[in-house]
C-alpha cells in the first residue's frame, strides 16, 4: 500500500516536472518529437534509479557514520556525473541512432536537477532502500509522461497559426502551464 501511494503521488499528484519544477531543461529541450522524448525518458529512468541506489548507499554507509553529511552535494554530483558518462558510453555502442537523437542532452543530464533532486529527496524523506527505488522509478515515469505529453502538444503546435510575439518558447511555456493546470486535477486522490 505504501508503494502505491508513493507511485500515484509521484506520477500524478506531485509530478516532478509540472508540480515540483525539476528537470525543466530537458523538458523544454528534447520535447520537440515524441520518439526522442521517450528515449530521453528511458535514459532518465535508468540514471535516476541507479543514482538513487548508489547515493543511498553512500550516505548511509559512508557520510552518516563518519559525520560527513556536509559533503553531500559534492559527493552526489560526482557520482551522478560518472554514471552519466557510463550511460553515454553504453548507449553509443548499443543504440547509435538514439545516441545521435539525444545529442547534447545526454552529457547535460549531469546538470539535470531532477536526478540530483530525487537523490536528495530520498534521503530527506528518510525512505528505506526499497521505497527509495520505487520513489525514483515512479518519478522518472512521471517525468517521461510529462515529456511525452508536451512533445505531443508541440507536434500539434507546429501546424497551427501562433501569434507573432508568442512564437517559440512563450507558447510552449503557456502550453506547459495549461498541462500543469490539468495535472492539478489529480490533487486529492492520495
Amino acid at each position: 500500500m505504501e508503494y502505491i501511494v508513493i507511485v500515484l503521488s509521484a506520477i500524478l499528484v506531485n509530478n516532478i516536472v509540472l508540480a515540483q519544477f525539476l528537470g525543466l531543461c530537458p523538458f523544454f529541450g528534447v520535447s520537440s518529437r515524441i520518439s526522442t522524448a521517450a528515449g530521453m525518458g528511458g535514459a532518465v529512468l535508468f540514471v535516476m534509479t541507479v543514482a538513487a541506489i548508489v547515493t543511498y548507499l553512500i550516505s548511509h554507509y559512508i557520510l552518516i557514520p563518519f559525520d560527513l553529511i556536509y559533503l553531500r552535494t559534492i559527493t552526489y554530483i560526482l557520482v551522478i556525473s560518472s554514471l552519466v558518462q557510463m550511460v553515454e558510453i553504453i548507449l553509443k555502442k548499443v543504440s547509435p541512432p538514439l545516441y545521435q537523437a539525444l545529442g547534447i542532452f545526454l552529457p547535460l543530464m549531469t546538470t539535470n536537477c531532477a536526478i540530483l533532486g530525487v537523490a536528495i529527496l530520498v534521503i530527506q524523506n528518510e525512505y528505506t532502500l526499497m521505497s527509495g527505488v520505487v520513489f525514483a522509478v515512479a518519478h522518472s515515469i512521471g517525468f517521461t509522461l510529462a515529456l511525452v505529453i508536451l512533445a505531443g502538444i508541440r507536434e500539434q503546435l507546429e501546424l497551427v497559426n501562433v501569434p507573432e510575439g508568442m512564437k517559440g518558447n512563450p507558447i510552449i511555456l503557456v502550453a506547459a502551464g495549461l498541462l500543469a493546470l490539468a495535472f492539478m486535477g489529480f490533487a486529492g486522490i492520495v
Partner: peptide
C-alpha cells in the same frame, strides 16, 4: 505551479 509557467511565457514574449 501552472501560473509559474504561464507568467514566464508572457514575460519571455
Amino acid at each position: 505551479a501552472p501560473g509559474a509557467f504561464i507568467a514566464l511565457g508572457y514575460l519571455i514574449a
